[in-house]
Every structure is written in structure tokens, then in C-alpha cells.
Measured scan of single mutants.
Amino acid sequence: TEIRININGVTIHVRDASEELKKLIEHLLRLGADEKEIREVLHRWEK
């Protein structure tokens, strides 16, 4: 699944996002995570 996240005008594009990762990101956004925090989570997730 491919997702695009727009945070304050900055688009983060994620290829091959699992449903689990998608739910995690949606949850973090609801909690008010910023772009830097989302990128950090994505970076750690890929490892």
C-alpha cells in the first residue's frame, strides 16, 4: 500500500506501507506528531 501524509504543507510519501504502519501513523497524527517525529518513526520502522 502506498500512502502520502501531508503535515503542514510537507508531504511524506511512503511506499509499501503495511496496514499496521498506516494505523500507527494515523494514531501518531491524532496525537499531534509533527513531520520530524513521523519521519523518525518511519526511519526506525524500515530497519
Score class of each variant (00 low, 15 high):
1 T>A: 10
1 T>L: 13
1 T>V: 13
2 E>Y: 03
2 E>Q: 08
2 E>K: 06
2 E>G: 06
2 E>V: 08
3 I>F: 10
3 I>E: 03
3 I>A: 03
3 I>N: 03
3 I>D: 03
4 R>H: 12
4 R>I: 11
4 R>G: 06
4 R>P: 06
4 R>S: 13
5 I>P: 01
6 N>D: 09
6 N>F: 13
6 N>R: 11
6 N>P: 06
7 I>D: 02
7 I>K: 04
7 I>Y: 01
8 N>P: 02
8 N>C: 04
9 G>L: 05
9 G>Y: 00
9 G>M: 04
9 G>N: 10
9 G>S: 06
9 G>R: 04
9 G>H: 07
9 G>I: 03
10 V>F: 04
11 T>E: 08
11 T>G: 07
11 T>F: 13
11 T>C: 07
11 T>N: 09
12 I>P: 00
12 I>M: 03
12 I>T: 02
12 I>A: 02
12 I>Q: 01
13 H>W: 07
13 H>D: 05
13 H>L: 13
13 H>S: 10
14 V>Q: 03
14 V>L: 08
14 V>K: 01
14 V>I: 10
14 V>P: 02
14 V>E: 02
15 R>S: 08
15 R>N: 09
15 R>P: 13
15 R>K: 12
16 D>S: 12
16 D>R: 13
16 D>Y: 15
16 D>Q: 13
16 D>K: 13
16 D>W: 15
16 D>F: 13
17 A>H: 05
17 A>I: 09
17 A>Q: 04
18 S>N: 09
19 E>Q: 10
19 E>C: 10
19 E>R: 08
20 E>L: 09
20 E>W: 13
20 E>R: 05
20 E>G: 06
21 L>C: 02
21 L>W: 03
21 L>A: 02
21 L>K: 02
21 L>M: 05
22 K>C: 03
22 K>V: 12
22 K>F: 15
23 K>Q: 13
23 K>H: 10
23 K>A: 12
24 L>S: 05
24 L>W: 10
24 L>R: 12
25 I>F: 03
25 I>S: 00
25 I>M: 08
26 E>K: 14
27 H>A: 14
28 L>Y: 10
28 L>P: 00
28 L>A: 09
28 L>C: 05
28 L>W: 04
29 L>G: 01
30 R>S: 08
31 L>S: 07
31 L>I: 13
32 G>A: 03
32 G>M: 03
32 G>R: 08
32 G>Y: 03
33 A>T: 08
33 A>V: 10
34 D>V: 05
34 D>F: 03
34 D>M: 07
34 D>N: 12
34 D>L: 08
35 E>M: 08
35 E>R: 02
35 E>A: 09
35 E>C: 06
35 E>Q: 07
36 K>V: 10
36 K>A: 11
36 K>P: 05
36 K>D: 09
37 E>S: 11
37 E>Y: 12
37 E>I: 12
37 E>P: 00
37 E>A: 13
38 I>D: 00
38 I>Y: 01
38 I>K: 00
38 I>T: 00
39 R>Y: 05
39 R>V: 05
39 R>G: 03
39 R>P: 00
39 R>H: 13
40 E>G: 06
41 V>M: 14
41 V>D: 00
41 V>L: 14
41 V>S: 05
41 V>E: 06
42 L>I: 13
42 L>H: 00
42 L>A: 01
42 L>R: 00
42 L>N: 00
42 L>G: 00
42 L>M: 05
43 H>K: 14
43 H>E: 09
43 H>R: 15
43 H>P: 00
43 H>C: 12
44 R>P: 01
44 R>E: 12
44 R>V: 09
44 R>N: 09
45 W>A: 03
45 W>P: 01
45 W>S: 02
45 W>C: 09
46 E>A: 15
46 E>K: 15
46 E>P: 09
46 E>D: 13
46 E>H: 15
46 E>V: 14
47 K>T: 15
47 K>E: 14
47 K>S: 15
47 K>C: 14
